[in-house]
Amino acid sequence: MYPQLFAYLDAGSASVIVQALVGGVAGFVVVVKMGGRRFLSFLPFVGKKFRDDPIDHEPTGSNGSAGEDAAEGSDETDLAALLEDAADS
């Protein structure tokens, strides 16, 4: 399970899939791997292929490491100086 507590919005499965689909062929492949039959069978033209697909395997567990930490050593950063530098034109 990903640390979704950092993203306070509900991802919405449909939105996740659409994002992938919009990405072109590579995205389409991702959606198929995720379980295309469930998600794509309603589409015109291509949907028929997924209605005819064999039954999916059981979903595997997620790889689930918590993801990389955000910037390490943040307490060592002089944030004030960083922001002053950004503000100076």
Binding site: I17, V30, F39
Partner: peptide, 28 residues
Amino acid sequence: LEQRLADSDEVAADKLKQSGFTTELITA
């Protein structure tokens, strides 16, 4: 898709990484 998945307990985001989703797709 929203209508179709309304009653589903699945969380699509969980499966993304192993299905090959990358940041490039977001950029696209």
